[in-house]
Each structure stands twice: as structure tokens, then as C-alpha cells.
Simulated scan of single mutants.
Amino acid sequence: MSKIEMTKKHLITCSVIVVLVIISSLNIFSTTPVFPAKHIAYTPSNLLFSKPADDAGEAFSFANEALPVNDKKVDFKLKKSIAKHRYKTVQSNVLHAKADKMFPIIEPILKAYGIPEDFKFVPLVESGLCEGTSPKGARGVWQFMPGTARSYGLKVGHGKDERLNLRKSTIAACKYIKELYGEFNSWTLAAAAYNNGSIKLERAINKQNEDNYFRMTLNRETGSYVYKLIAMKEIINNPAKYGYKNFYSYLQKPLPFLVAYN
């Protein structure tokens, strides 16, 4: 075979290979690639509540505002807070008994002021539904400081302290909470501000350029505050699940032996 014929054959072979490569490339780029779901990161704008692994199927919430999805730090703090309030940890049914008496008074007042019902758990976290005075001077189930109490219409001083009046102090709390919501446009942040004060919370928001409570770095007490509210809500609404057996529950009928005892 002559050199000219060999060259022509070689060129034809190369041309065929090039055409095949081009066709193959066209097929590849005309096909939409499919990746395993685990490689696709999608975060919906309306975040759903995260669910700890051991509570799959359970939804946790506060005033219908959402926790970041699949956030290990959030899940850990929530589970830790719930664990702290289990019966085997606190060994007490007092909160259930007091909630049974006080919630029917607190709930309609919250509703009248347009405050989410979940705020009824604030007194449980703030004071354990006790009426004692804190070292800083806060008093009553809503733990009002004297100056704040007067600002929202409560009489404090001269032998009178309306912070101890459940109805009046709840009305004052509603006014304060509604004002906080108007400032932060978030019930979760309103709850945090109730604990820490609006000035300190606003500073933290500006400094961190972040207004999602669950993504903020706050002091220890305020940083765990909303988690405590959610935990208290879970414990009060599902007492038997967390080891509380001899309890009152405004959501359920009293246990038979409690009726007999009374």
C-alpha cells in the first residue's frame, strides 16, 4: 500500500473518531444531569419546625414561628431543655396544678389582646407560677420590675402591689408584649425581649446583623429562654409522655384517683 493511500486511510479514521466525539458531546450536554438528592440543598422561605431525631413526627413551635430546619445546634438545645423539665429531673407536679388554676384566667386575656396563646407559658418559665420576689426586685407571676409595672398601669407602692393580681398583671403583660411585637415584628423576638429587655436585644440584632432568634448569639439566659417556653409547652400539653403521672391538666379530665381523693 502506498504512502498516499495510508495517509488517506488514517485521515478517514481520525475524521470518524472526531465525529463520534462531537456526537457524544452533543448527547451529554442535551441531557439534564441528575444528581442524588443528598447533593441538592434547598431551603424553603417558610421554614418548617425542626424535629429532633428521637421525636420524629412531633412538631415543636412557639407562636407558630419556625426554628431553622435540620440545625443540629437548635435540636440539641431543644432536647436539652425538654430533658431538664422531665419528671425524673424536676420531680414535681406543682407546675401542672398551678397551670390548671391560672391558665383559664390568662388565656382569655391573651386572646382579647391578640397575643398568641403560647405566651401563657411565660409565667411558668419566669417564676414557676409563683408570686415571689427575685433578687433584682421583679415580682408576681409575670415578674415585673416596679418601674415597668407602673409603666403599664399597675400600682406598686404605698402598701399596694398589683403585680400580685393575676388578672391585672396579665393585662399589663399583654400591653408590654404587644408593644415588643410592634418593635420587632416577631413573637419569638418579643419573648426574648421580654426576658432581656428591648434595648439589649436591639443592640444584639444590630451588632450581629441577624434578626432570627435561633441564629443569634445571646447571653445564656436569653439564648435558652424560648427553648424553655417550647419545652414547658410540650411538658404541660403531654405530661404523661414525660413521666408526669399524678397531675392535673386543664386539657384532660382529672385522673380517677384524684377525683376520689378530692
Rank of each mutant, 00 (worst) to 15 (best):
residue 93 N to E: 13
residue 124 L to S: 11
residue 227 Y to F: 15
residue 73 K to T: 12
residue 102 M to W: 03
residue 27 N to F: 02
residue 183 E to H: 14
residue 255 L to C: 00
residue 1 M to F: 05
residue 229 L to F: 06
residue 129 L to H: 03
residue 74 V to Y: 07
residue 68 P to G: 07
residue 70 N to K: 15
residue 34 V to D: 13
residue 96 H to G: 01
residue 182 G to T: 06
residue 124 L to Y: 08
residue 102 M to Y: 13
residue 177 I to M: 13
residue 140 G to F: 03
residue 24 S to L: 10
residue 68 P to S: 02
residue 114 G to D: 03
residue 204 A to P: 00
residue 95 L to M: 15
residue 144 F to Y: 07
residue 151 S to N: 15
residue 54 D to H: 09
residue 16 V to C: 10
residue 132 G to N: 13
residue 170 T to K: 03
residue 110 L to Y: 03
residue 55 D to K: 15
residue 231 A to F: 00
residue 136 K to F: 04
residue 54 D to F: 11
residue 218 L to A: 04
residue 142 W to K: 10
residue 239 P to T: 05
residue 31 T to L: 01
residue 231 A to E: 06
residue 42 Y to W: 11
residue 27 N to V: 05
residue 243 G to K: 03
residue 37 A to E: 15
residue 201 L to M: 08
residue 79 K to T: 15
residue 220 R to V: 09
residue 229 L to R: 07
residue 248 Y to G: 00
residue 65 E to W: 11
residue 91 Q to D: 10
residue 165 N to F: 05
residue 227 Y to N: 09
residue 132 G to C: 02
residue 129 L to G: 01
residue 18 V to D: 01
residue 240 A to Q: 11
residue 154 L to T: 12
residue 213 Y to I: 11
residue 9 K to D: 02
residue 210 E to Y: 02
residue 25 S to K: 01
residue 18 V to W: 01
residue 173 A to D: 04
residue 74 V to P: 10
residue 155 K to M: 11
residue 19 V to G: 01
residue 122 V to S: 07
residue 140 G to L: 05
residue 125 V to I: 14
residue 209 N to R: 09
residue 75 D to M: 14
residue 233 K to T: 04
residue 167 R to D: 06
residue 72 K to D: 04
residue 6 M to G: 00
residue 71 D to L: 09
residue 157 G to Y: 08
residue 122 V to M: 14
residue 239 P to L: 03
residue 157 G to S: 06
residue 120 K to E: 09
residue 220 R to A: 11
residue 74 V to E: 05
residue 179 E to H: 07
residue 243 G to I: 05
residue 69 V to A: 14
residue 161 D to N: 03
residue 110 L to G: 05
residue 71 D to K: 15
residue 252 Q to F: 06
residue 196 N to D: 07
residue 183 E to R: 15
residue 12 I to Q: 02
residue 225 Y to H: 04
residue 235 I to P: 00
residue 41 A to Q: 11
residue 197 G to Q: 10
residue 128 G to R: 05
residue 176 Y to A: 04
residue 249 S to E: 05
residue 131 E to M: 07
residue 194 Y to W: 15
residue 203 R to I: 13
residue 258 L to M: 11
residue 161 D to Y: 02
residue 144 F to I: 11
residue 176 Y to I: 07
residue 66 A to L: 09
residue 155 K to Q: 13
residue 224 S to C: 06
residue 111 K to V: 02
residue 13 T to W: 00
residue 98 K to L: 14
residue 57 G to T: 12
residue 74 V to C: 12
residue 237 N to R: 06
residue 260 A to D: 09
residue 23 I to G: 01
residue 35 F to R: 11
residue 6 M to V: 10
residue 258 L to N: 05
residue 118 D to A: 03
residue 52 P to H: 14
residue 243 G to D: 10
residue 172 A to V: 08
residue 248 Y to T: 08
residue 134 S to H: 10
residue 173 A to L: 05
residue 261 Y to A: 15
residue 28 I to M: 06
residue 214 F to Q: 05
residue 218 L to V: 08
residue 176 Y to S: 06
residue 78 L to F: 05
residue 52 P to Y: 15
residue 218 L to S: 07
residue 10 H to M: 12
residue 120 K to Q: 12
residue 170 T to G: 04
residue 194 Y to D: 09
residue 155 K to I: 12
residue 220 R to W: 04
residue 162 E to H: 02
residue 138 A to F: 00
residue 153 G to K: 13
residue 3 K to P: 00
residue 83 A to M: 08
residue 95 L to F: 08
residue 209 N to V: 01
residue 18 V to F: 07
residue 16 V to M: 10
residue 195 N to F: 05
residue 217 T to F: 00
residue 169 S to E: 02
